[in-house]
Write a protein that binds this DNA or RNA. Structure first.
Length: 466
RNA sequence: UCCUCAGUAGCUCAGUUGGUUAGAGCGGCGGACUGUUAAUCCGUAGGUCGUUGGUUCGAGCCCAACCUGGGGAGCCA
């Protein structure tokens, strides 16, 4: 007898007649007065539950098996059998069922075996992983994360653990969460009356990182091909289905690479991870296609098989101006594209992800490389239908004089960028990279409409429960 | 933060121009039936209608403020 994971039982890894023990939680139970109960047990190893056929002859049948309800934890031993019913190939003819943990009040157990709203499930972040849908999300999320690491590993990238606590308040990517051990009730003050951060834990102001990019650039300028994959934090008061205060970001950075190189890298990476999900999590994806988004599987398949459309910002403006559609925000060269514009381009004009490139310098960050035209920078965004911006990247400005001009033009003090400027002073190279919001990726792949439902414990303004 | 919609049973919702005792489905419990598949059938329990205040003879329904959540926008990944 051996402990079995349910995935192995259902996939036929055991022979009919083999004796196995499975451990998991009851999903549903159906009784037959003829003298058997069907107990569906899941353990998270795959989407489906295994059906345990429990005969009334078991000594605890009346006293325990018949009282099983959703979420009771059980250990079931028995023999593998071909299922007489439809819906599964194999099942377990139980020779013993041990109840490990009861549900104290089935009437008020929050995860009843029925359809719940995503908003309701969010209030039970500690119990929602037991549902079909969050189990599936969890497995797909894991599959994507593993595939990302595998993709970069195969291409010779090194995974760099960039810091989560940062002393830099100059990343310019949004509001930051302060990290401090100072006593808020009794703040130390300087003579000028300001808070005296030299008394703080790090002898200076510190924050949670909003991006690992600047740090990972340093390793790029030594190890050539690197990436970060970790949590990032934005204290923006953003209340949308695409924003989290704590989210995970993947940021590769490649030396001697131009914008077109990382655009291709981004396309290759997305296709690689989509393919991995289609191959490895077909069971979960089938569920998403059935219950969440009919197009979930087709969309990925289509993307794996086609190349992404590339378009210059300037051409996109022309398309928007001539498309005959009226937008709430008027379109002219130089504007930052609004959601409605991005939606039109990705959803209506192309109907697939689109790589937009070469944006006006005035709407982009200081570190992006100035193009020869002097008006645009080598930046790209990948816009996905239904989600909007999923990737943002650029070629970095490697010329010190140009970088300093950009810092000055944006009113930034170059002394705050000492170590970043050093990269341009000592053996500078062209290099490029991008950032991919991991939750947006999971959201796109699964068809889940809200990033709060693809991260285990979502942090959003006013909500840090659990 | 702004705009907008919503909050009624454990869950998902219905509830007429303001009018007696607020309904259904699912889930729970009890029973019937059946190698069942989110089984089916019968029965049953379950409610301070988000909170506070107001209008009214009378408020689930109208008004105000607040709280919570959704959708959209801005910001972005």
């Amino acid at each position: 007898m051996s402990d079995a994971v349910i995935h192995d039982v259902l996939s036929g890894r055991y022979a009919v007649g083999d004796t196995v023990t499975v451990k998991g939680w009851v999903r549903t139970k159906r009784d037959s007065k003829a003298g058997i109960s069907f107990v569906a047990v899941h353990d998270g190893s795959c989407f489906d539950a295994v059906q345990a056929v429990v005969p009334a002859e078991l000594p605890n049948y009346e006293s325990e098996v018949k009282r099983l309800t959703t979420a009771c934890s059980v250990v079931v031993s028995g023999t593998i059998a071909r299922s007489e019913g439809q819906g599964q190939q194999f099942e377990i003819q139980a020779s013993s069922v041990t109840v490990v943990g009861w549900v104290e009040n089935p009437d008020t157990y929050p995860m009843a075996p029925k359809r719940h709203s995503m908003e309701y499930l969010r209030e039970f972040a500690h119990l929602r992983p037991r549902t079909n849908i969050h189990g599936a999300v969890t497995r797909v999320r894991n599959c994507l994360a593993q595939a990302v690491h595998r993709f970069f590993h195969q291409r010779g990238f090194y995974w760099i653990s960039t810091p989560i606590i940062t002393g830099s308040d100059t990343e310019g990517a949004g509001e930051m969460f302060r990290v401090s051990t100072l006593d808020l009730e009794n703040l130390p003050r300087t003579e000028a009356g300001k808070v005296d951060y030299s008394k703080d834990f790090f002898d200076r102001e510190t924050f949670l990182t909003v991006s690992g990019q600047l740090n990972v650039e340093t390793y790029c300028c030594a190890l050539s091909k690197v990436y970060t994959f970790g949590p990032t934090f934005r204290a923006e008061n953003s209340n949308t289905s695409r924003h989290l205060a704590e989210f995970w970001m993947i940021e590769p950075e490649v030396a001697f690479a131009e914008l077109a190189d990382v655009a291709q890298l981004a396309e290759d990476m997305l296709k690689y991870v989509f393919k991995a999900v289609l191959e490895e999590r077909a069971d979960d994806m089938a569920f998403f296609a059935e219950r969440v988004d009919k197009d979930a599987v087709n969309r990925l398949q289509k993307m794996v098989d086609s190349s992404f459309v590339r378009m210059d910002y300037t051409d996109a403006i022309e398309i928007l101006q001539n498309c005959g559609k009226t937008f709430n925000y008027p379109v002219e060269w130089g504007i930052d594209l609004q959601s409605e514009h991005e939606r039109y381009l990705a959803e209506e004009h192309v109907g697939a992800p689109i790589i937009l490139q070469n944006y006006p310098k005035d709407i982009k960050a200081f570190y992006m490389r100035l193009n020869e035209d002097g008006k645009t920078v080598a930046a790209m965004d990948i816009l996905a239908p239904g989600i909007g911006e999923i990737i943002g990247g650029s070629q970095r400005e490697e010329r010190l004089d140009k970088l300093d001009e950009r810092l000055a033009a944006m009113g930034l003090d170059k002394d705050d960028y000492g170590w970043y400027r050093d990269l341009r002073r000592y053996g500078t190279v062209p290099h490029s990279g991008f950032g991919l919001g991991f939750e947006r990726l999971v959201s796109y792949v699964t068809g889940m409409g809200n990033v709060r439902d693809v991260i285990p414990f979502p942090r959003t303004p006013g909500n840090a429960d659990f």
